[in-house]
Design a protein around this nucleic acid. Structure first.
Lengths: 233, 233
DNA sequence: GTCATAGGGTTACAATTATTCACAATTAGA
DNA sequence: TCTAATTGTGAATAATTGTAACCCTATGAC
């Protein structure tokens, strides 16, 4: 659940927004002025910051400039003043969006989601090929973790490397020579069995049955391959 | 210079926008319908895409859905129709902003810049970043302090250096040699355990479980890496 | 079909590497 | 200087991985 920090002095509007966002699975923290904003942002940073422009004491623009060095996430201004100059100014000092009141809750929500989507996208887009999903099995390279039927599968480093090598190209044979060279990191001498041992341990953790494996299959005398769609029991 | 792709059938508005953006150091490409949009985006992807909603032939929403799989960058809708439902819909199908006509050129420019800033920020400037935020964990280089779940985490100087080194490139392996050379300040002799001890102390303070760590993970025989997403276990 | 054989699956245990603890050494502050 | 906090050291413990042995199964010759 994403955390929203709302700074708004109009109690009626604040509680309206709070209610609507809470209904839509956000955790909302409310401040009625910018007094403790900096401290709040530093100790429990929100996922998105909603700032009213006209506030008692320090105004939203000034707060934005103060808080920006400590808060890199999305920041959204709300204001009753429909003034192009202010809008341009707000965006230029580092806001990501600028909404003119009256705020329609559905629109606010859509804009919040658009900002959050973009923000998590950019983190995720570096790892475009970082996550594989096959039925109930998920393999995430950025965290080097695997999940099966919603449960965390505790794989060791080498087990994970082996699984990734096989799973990144489902149905494609990975022969012993390749496996040793690219995963184990040495040449295959024709006698070494450590790849087999790794496969064996992997199968066990993936709840695969070696007599009738469905995830990692063996091609006798050649190597192994990963099966993408498996019918889970 | 950034490239803008503008899809707008109103010739007067299109040339007005084109002129204003060109004056402000953009390269503008214009299309008067969505006919060749997909091809254009694939052959010369713009830095930002401006889409009119009401277009001859295929409308902007439909174009957005078609083009999104091939264009991950910022996308902005412009429309004369001031309808909340449309706005919400546009944002939900993947737009980053939605502007109601009449379009004020200065406002359009400010919004374009806000989107581009956000887009390049997250990718490019991690080396100049003073503050990292991963879920409930923030790490602030300017004050050399870290916060977890709103609480101050008391890190020693070396613990902070180690955490920063790992966290500035999440999911990237930092091997022992690098760790000793760049954080501890001496060469790794193959026996020294002080990096492990620091990691161990760090994990404890980050409330990480070394049996099943989620923040700082070990790659056996190689080194360590930092995990950005906290929702793992 | 039987059999011999080559290769794969599994296991116990050894080797390697990581984690942690108590305490020693070092450093920073008063 | 003294004191407290920080950091390193070495040893005990735990986890991971490789090795060698055993057994099993697929394959092909007969």
């Amino acid at each position: 659940m994403k955390q929203v920090l709302l700074v708004e002095d109009d109690e009626r509007l604040s509680s309206l927004i709070c209610q609507y966002l809470t209904e839509n699975d956000f955790i909302v923290h409310r401040l009625s002025s910018g007094e403790n904003l900096l401290q709040h942002v530093q100790t429990s940073p929100p996922d998105i910051l909603l700032l009213d422009v006209m506030l008692p004491g320090e105004n939203g623009f000034s707060l934005c400039q103060k808080v920006r060095p400590y808060y890199p996430g999305p920041l959204l201004f709300m204001t009753a003043k429909n003034d192009d100059f202010d809008q341009v100014f707000g965006l230029e000092i580092g806001a990501d969006d600028y909404i003119i009141k009256p705020v329609e809750p559905r629109v606010l929500l859509a804009r919040i989601n658009a900002l959050l989507r973009r923000n998590t996208d950019s983190v995720a887009s570096n790892n475009s090929l970082q996550r594989l999903q096959y039925g109930q099995l998920t393999i995430d390279r950025s965290t080097r973790s695997a999940h099966l039927k919603g449960e965390d599968v505790q794989l060791t480093s080498h087990e994970f490397d082996m699984l990734w090598k096989l799973a990144e190209n489902p149905s494609v044979l990975v022969d012993r020579t390749t496996l040793y060279r690219e995963v184990i990191g040495r040449e295959y001498d024709g006698l070494d069995r450590s790849a087999d041992v790794r496969i064996s341990r992997l199968r066990k953790k993936l709840q695969d049955n070696s007599q009738h494996p469905y995830r990692i299959k063996t091609i006798w005398g050649k190597g192994f391959f990963f099966v993408a769609d498996a019918w889970d029991d």
